[in-house]
Design a protein around this nucleic acid. Structure first.
Length: 280
DNA sequence: ATGTCAGAAATCTTCTGA
């Protein structure tokens, strides 16, 4: 089999896979991305448009979903093994699925598509059960990674983590300090999750920490681009062995203009691991 | 507090979740 020079992995909260099916095809055609991790597919597994997506070039799929809300998937041009869905906080709510990508036998790569709960409006776990669930979910997924992997494993976490951790990850740090997605308690929880396997925030490896980067813009602005009140809620993390293989990270903000748009845009990671393996 | 989406269940609109 011909080995590709790179492996590209996208993370995209698509806000209904059926509503935006043609945009998956467009993303495939315009970027050629190898793997797409989806969140908020909002489709039951029988309703998931598997055949159509296979025809777009992604015959290998890991899907978890039910009607109405949530739902995650991994779409791949490469075979997927060991597909596992993970329930956290005693729920089977289709927020986390993983698969092992088998490009070569020597270095398996485990890819996770994750959708962290949004958390409601009030950033107080004592009065808002959704916020309490969000914090418990992040703790639970941190425990999962702390207990299930070694620091030498190749692991990619791609998802809507619903937290914008850095001041430059939101349009106004001071104004959002008490707004859910940017509160100190959520940022601390996300940091613990990140440390669970010494994950590296791939985008911030290639974009300076002070540069504003957003992946989500609310539907409620009349003109999302003019207002530009965005947040970086979508992340791709890699485990330490993959750090030196980050070949680039791109936020496809133009996708926010594709009609009808999701409120999130894809983040794409390029890994150079395969090329390095060829050279050694 | 506001606005805008998407899906479900039940209608021709309201609810929930985001």
């Amino acid at each position: 089999m011909l080995t590709p020079p790179t492996l590209t992995i996208a993370s995209w909260n698509i806000n209904s896979v059926r509503r935006r099916l043609d945009q998956i095809e467009r993303l495939a055609n315009e970027t050629g991305v190898d793997v797409i991790c989806l969140q908020e597919t909002k489709a039951s597994e029988p309703d998931f448009p598997a055949a159509e997506i296979a025809a777009f070039g992604y015959p290998h799929q890991a899907v978890a979903g039910f009607g109405g809300y949530n739902g995650v998937a991994i779409l791949s041009r490469w075979p997927l093994g060991q597909i596992e869905r993970h329930g956290h906080c005693e729920r089977e709510d289709a927020r986390h699925i993983s698969a092992v990508i088998t490009i070569n036998d020597s270095e398996p790569l485990t890819i996770h598509s994750v959708y962290v709960p949004a958390g409601g409006d009030i950033p107080d776990a004592a009065v808002n059960p959704k916020f309490a669930h969000k914090l418990r979910f992040i703790d639970a997924i941190a425990d999962y990674f702390a207990g299930g992997f070694g620091f030498r494993d190749n692991v990619v976490v791609a998802g809507d983590l619903n937290v914008a951790p850095l001041p430059s990850d939101v349009w106004n740090h001071a104004k959002l300090a008490r707004i859910v997605t940017h509160t100190p308690i959520e940022i601390a929880a996300l940091e613990r999750f990140k440390r669970s396997l010494h994950f590296i925030d791939a985008l911030r490896e290639v974009v300076p920490e002070d540069d504003p980067v957003f992946t989500w813009w609310s539907y409620r602005a009349a003109d999302w681009k003019a207002a530009n009140k965005g947040r970086r809620l979508d992340h791709i993390w890699v485990s330490t062995p993959l750090k030196d293989k980050i070949g680039g990270v791109e936020v496809l903000s133009d996708v926010r203009n594709w009609a009808p748009p999701s409120d999130h845009v894809p983040v794409v990671l390029k890994l150079d691991m395969i090329r390095e393996q060829l050279e050694t």
